[in-house]
């Protein structure tokens, strides 16, 4: 797939690949939780919370009460876009 667009295909997303060693599932789970916490911090001004979904992927909860499950970082950006929520831009300056 276009790994970050998430436009095509399913399965493990780009950030979940790599040699996970003997504790692969545990490592993925730990990284997903860390990713979710960092995303929640990043999106806190939008009152959006992200949690690691059991198995893999994330649950994105919106201030209106709705929630959606996504599989990857790329899908999160698409989800924000679909809901017309401004996306974080690393180059936009702070």
């Amino acid at each position: 797939m276009c790994s970050l667009c998430g436009a095509l295909g399913r399965g493990l997303s780009w950030e979940q690949h790599g040699d996970l060693g003997d504790n692969g599932r545990w490592q993925l789970r730990r990284e997903a939780m860390e990713t979710a916490a960092a995303l929640s911090d990043l999106l806190a001004p939008r009152r959006i919370k992200v949690a690691a979904n059991p198995d893999h992927g994330f649950v994105v909860a919106f201030p209106t009460g709705g929630a959606e499950i996504v599989q990857s970082l790329g899908e999160i950006w698409h989800l924000l876009l679909r809901r017309k929520i401004p996306l974080p831009d690393p180059l936009a300056g702070l």
Partner: peptide
């Protein structure tokens, strides 16, 4: 994870 968030947002 921090690197992945940065790179994915940047490339997106």
């Amino acid at each position: 994870p921090r690197f992945a968030i940065w790179l994915s947002a940047l490339i997106f």
